[in-house]
Computed example of a mutant assay.
Amino acid sequence: MAQKETASPLQIELARRILERIRDTSVSVGARVSVPELAREFGVSRSPVSAALDILVGKGILEPMPTRGLRVARDVADMDLSSVLPTSPLEELHRRVMRDRALGKLSHEVSEAELIPRYNVPRGVIRKLLMRFAAEGLVQRLPGHGWRFIDTLLDDDAYVESYEFRIAVECAALTSSGYKVDSSAVSGAEARA
């Protein structure tokens, strides 16, 4: 497969998402990469997936198999993705929207119509971003029109409440009948201490 000179924003975004998938699911070196499976997972046709894979071949992340297809060529567990792939416009927009939401510059409920002029991007890009947020569990579509960000830990009270919840749940888990101490992990921790 030959790498194109200029990759489209979709191809760069797909290459990044494929690389994240390989990293996050701990795919081992030598594992085969399936174009049809990736196309189904990301909801796109095979052509942009193949182009995204070409980008990853060009970066040495994937390599052609001796017969046919591609496989993972190197371990990506600790790889800095920004050093491998340029940031796609959608990735940068994702960061901007999340930053604005975290800083309280963006309301809890938004519409595509208000996001288009705010971020100066076409409706299709905003829609793609909101669909990605929905897939990531960050927003929900409202009946009619509009989107609602899920409740997040935006203030000090929310952080305190989340820790109080974790204390209750995690301590209760220690008393459950299914809980067993992994003695090899405990003995390893004692040895390191």
Rank of each mutant, 00 (worst) to 15 (best):
159 Y>R: 15
177 S>V: 04
162 S>C: 07
149 F>G: 00
185 A>C: 02
168 A>I: 08
182 D>H: 10
149 F>P: 01
163 Y>I: 14
178 G>V: 01
150 I>E: 12
176 S>L: 12
181 V>T: 12
167 I>K: 05
165 F>A: 06
182 D>S: 13
167 I>D: 03
182 D>G: 00
165 F>P: 02
180 K>D: 03
157 D>W: 01
160 V>C: 03
152 T>K: 09
164 E>C: 03
175 T>A: 09
181 V>K: 12
183 S>I: 05
156 D>C: 03
161 E>H: 08
155 D>P: 00
182 D>P: 04
182 D>F: 02
182 D>R: 08
171 C>A: 11
159 Y>Q: 08
171 C>L: 14
184 S>P: 02
148 R>K: 13
162 S>F: 10
155 D>R: 13
159 Y>F: 15
166 R>P: 01
151 D>S: 09
177 S>H: 03
175 T>S: 14
181 V>Q: 10
180 K>A: 06
177 S>G: 04
169 V>G: 03
151 D>P: 07
161 E>I: 04
162 S>A: 15
153 L>Y: 10
160 V>N: 02
169 V>I: 11
179 Y>A: 06
156 D>P: 08
180 K>I: 00
169 V>N: 10
158 A>C: 05
155 D>V: 09
164 E>H: 08
160 V>T: 14
181 V>I: 15
158 A>D: 09
174 L>T: 05
161 E>Y: 08
150 I>V: 15
167 I>T: 01
162 S>G: 05
184 S>K: 07
154 L>D: 12
156 D>I: 11
152 T>D: 09
158 A>I: 05
170 E>C: 03
161 E>F: 08
148 R>S: 08
169 V>L: 12
154 L>Q: 14
154 L>Y: 11
180 K>F: 05
181 V>P: 04
173 A>T: 15
171 C>K: 12
171 C>N: 14
171 C>P: 00
160 V>Y: 05
